[in-house]
Design a protein around this nucleic acid. Structure first.
Lengths: 245, 245
DNA sequence: ACTTACATTTCGCAC
DNA sequence: GTGCGAAGTGTAAGT
């Protein structure tokens, strides 16, 4: 259902009907946007595409970027009204308290869309896949590596794969699906430190970062703390080609 | 410009015209989606909203979530074609090499939208704002704090605010606009360790994390490393109310 | 509701 | 182009 150059009243009726039906709404028109919540923002007049989803999500898109210029996450409540010659959408949520106000000077187009069909994506190449590759063939990490647990808890957080090397020394393995920087090195360092603390009096714990590649600075940080790096690609589960490193 | 229940041919012509004009395109219809690049995914048949932006961004939205189910970032190249009774969009980019394929069994609606007007958001409450509050009034961190530099480089990365306390001891201040977890504590720890390394032989360096609040685990990590915490709200630049902590 | 970490994160900025 | 960290990050899983 689409309206071209509708009156504000028409948009209001159709919006309420669409909410009722659980349709997704798209509005294109000249509007301002105000947001207040975790931060606060204002956006001056311009033509934008506004999307209202039946799950409570709201998106305001300009002609640039993948990220909406303003939005409201799912679970928000949308309300529509006509006031002061404007068609207005107010979207509110709690925890945290946030409001999004879109005020249309003119709505160029209104659509109510019945969105049906699958929304479950079949995705490959995640960190989870990389973990499965390693559990299927622990030698990928190193000869004699024995995985003992996944998501093994420490005081600093959960270790992706916890195990032992061929000499029975504890090993913390941290997985990343893409090239890693300093933060991943720091993360592994936290886990290894937590294990050493847990085991007490100078226990030996090794830390291995598994990822397609590392930046220089991350490599230096790993080095500083005696941590190791193993190059593996998340999709193939094999060492990446040199061109991919 | 909008077409309802157009033929694939009509959509193709209008799509090419819209690309030419630099319009934003919205398509609603029954389609499958395939993605291959940093990861890979497939999405079965269903009604979705597809948005093609003139900057090369592509978005595929279902009726749920704020995040598109599939997408392509700005800078991609969109191509349209009719083949095997389908209207197809292929969006490609390089570095990294990624392709997005949307195949429409039926296009229920096509729109070409001329998106004009401001897209610059005026946003308040960022980490940058918090920094300005502190530079305007360093006492917010602690009595006698003297900022000497922002983005001060270390071997582990840049320190948000570098300065000295009232006794001339070096202080690294890390800012966060929201409640912090273990990673922020680790980040500050990296910077402080880098400064100690840089200054050599047991030099004293203090680290202060400034944020609205901390999680328990993060507080424990700070404690472990002798790091400190100061509670400040990024918007007001003042200690947050108890209810906000 | 809160914590924790992943994400095809995206985005901006500096080198 | 790569590196690095912020973001109103969003999202899922566990507690």
């Amino acid at each position: 259902m689409t309206l071209s150059r509708p009156t504000h009243r028409e948009v209001l009726w159709q919006t309420e009907d669409a909410f009722e039906r659980g349709d997704m709404i798209t509005l294109f028109g000249r509007c301002t946007v105000e947001y207040d919540g975790r931060a606060a923002s204002t956006l001056g007049l311009g033509n934008r595409l506004v999307i209202l989803k039946p799950d409570g999500a709201a998106l305001v898109h300009t002609d640039e970027k993948r990220t909406p210029v303003n939005w409201q996450p799912p679970g928000s409540e949308h309300h529509a009204a006509v006031r002061d010659g404007q068609f207005r959408i107010r979207s509110e949520r709690t925890t945290p308290a946030e409001t999004l106000d879109v005020r249309f000077e003119a709505v160029h187009q209104f659509s109510a869309l019945s969105v049906t069909g699958g929304r479950d994506l079949d995705l490959q190449g995640s960190e989870e896949d990389l973990r499965q590759h390693i559990l299927d063939d622990p030698e990928l990490v190193e000869s004699g590596f024995l995985p003992l647990a996944t998501e093994r808890e420490t005081s600093a957080g959960p270790i992706d794969i916890y195990g032992e090397d061929d000499e029975g020394v504890a090993v913390a393995v941290e997985l990343k699906r893409r090239r890693v920087g300093p933060s991943a090195a720091g993360q592994l360092q936290r886990y290894v430190a937590a294990l050493r603390e847990e085991f007490g009096d100078g226990a030996t714990v090794r830390g291995i970062l598994v990822a397609p590649s590392v930046t220089d600075r991350a490599a230096a940080l790993l080095d500083q703390h005696g941590l190791e790096f193993v190059a593996l690609d998340p999709t193939t589960g094999r060492p990446p080609e040199k061109s991919e490193e």
